[in-house]
């Protein structure tokens, strides 16, 4: 099996929000970043994948299994980390293991102990005594203890300090090293993905803006800068997003549309630039 996660034509309607026709695939052995501004539909996609929400349309396959018809099989090798802990606050770490391990045939107690030690988590502590970063590591430790093939992380870095964020990225890089594991990493902090992700799926206002290689996304856009007088009508048509200053402008354009901007100053775009400039639904920044 080459694809660990297949999402096809996924749609979901809420009052006031619609997730429309989302399609992407995550191959085995890679990290995919699921990016988009707050409220763009990232958590909805993850909840739909996990069958916690019912889609209006579309299908999802986790490790080759349909996420509804074969829910049990699909979730057997799936690990999930949310932005906040999902264990009982009153549980001791040893109780977390006792409660969760029963559901996974390939749970390895020794691995769990080793990971706790590596993450500096004391088994005698209660969940509520752990910091947010430690709670995130505890969720990861559980997923690693049954050797989850696919890891889904929903905004795991929000609220974490830079050191913890860096640690998480290091852990994920180690996790996929053997080529047998994949990660879907939802975040609005795109800087986290610049280093770690191989693929990017960018959701904008419930619609798929891009899904493909990270480099393909970054190479696909450029930032152009110039004086106000250099912004012609012809150029404006090619601009995806613009910031105007008293002295000039900076704008995001597709690399393929760069030709008319040849005389202007051109810089590579970061993922942050792409998300920020394209998140105004075509409205221009003033």
């Amino acid at each position: 099996m080459n694809n660990y996660l297949e999402v096809r034509n996924l749609s979901k309607s809420f009052k006031g929000f619609q997730l429309h026709d989302i399609t992407f695939t995550l191959p085995k052995g890679y990290i995919m970043g699921l990016i988009g501004p707050n409220g763009s539909g990232k958590t909805t996609i993850i909840k739909l994948i996990l069958n916690m929400l019912k889609p209006t349309n579309g299908e999802v396959k986790i490790l080759g299994f349909d996420h509804v018809a074969n829910e049990q099989e699909a979730k057997r090798n799936l690990g999930v980390v949310f932005d906040s802990n999902y264990f009982s606050d009153e549980w001791k770490i040893s109780q977390v293991e006792k409660s969760v391990s029963a559901f996974y045939e390939n749970w390895n107690t020794q691995t769990f102990s080793e990971i706790l030690e590596k993450f500096h988590i004391q088994p005698s502590k209660r969940v509520k005594e752990l910091s947010k970063g430690m709670q995130m590591k505890l969720m990861l430790a559980c997923a690693f203890s049954y050797d989850a093939k696919l890891l889904i992380l929903d905004e795991p870095t929000s609220g974490l300090d830079p050191v913890s964020r860096d640690e998480l990225l290091h852990i994920l890089s180690e996790y996929i090293e053997d080529g047998e594991h994949s990660v879907l990493f939802s975040t609005h902090i795109t800087g986290d993905l610049e280093r770690a992700a191989d693929y990017i799926t960018y959701i904008r206002y419930g619609e798929l803006f891009f899904s493909g290689g990270k480099d393909e996304l970054i190479d696909g856009f450029r930032i152009v800068k110039g004086g106000r007088e250099e912004l012609s009508e012809e150029l404006s048509k090619k601009i995806l997003g613009i910031r105007n200053f008293s002295t000039g402008f900076e704008a995001l354009v597709r690399t393929e549309d760069l030709k008319p901007f040849a005389r202007l100053h051109v810089e590579p775009a970061t993922m942050d630039d792409i998300v920020v400039f394209t998140s105004k639904r075509g409205e221009l920044y003033e």
């Binding site: 829910e71 049990q72 099989e73 699909a74 979730k75 690990g79 999902y86 009982s88 969760v100």
Partner: peptide, 15 residues
């Protein structure tokens, strides 16, 4: 409900 554990129940491999 207090611990938002419906998410844990949502990811466990159980019908």
């Amino acid at each position: 409900e207090k611990n938002s554990m419906e998410r844990l129940y949502g990811i466990l491999p159980i019908r």
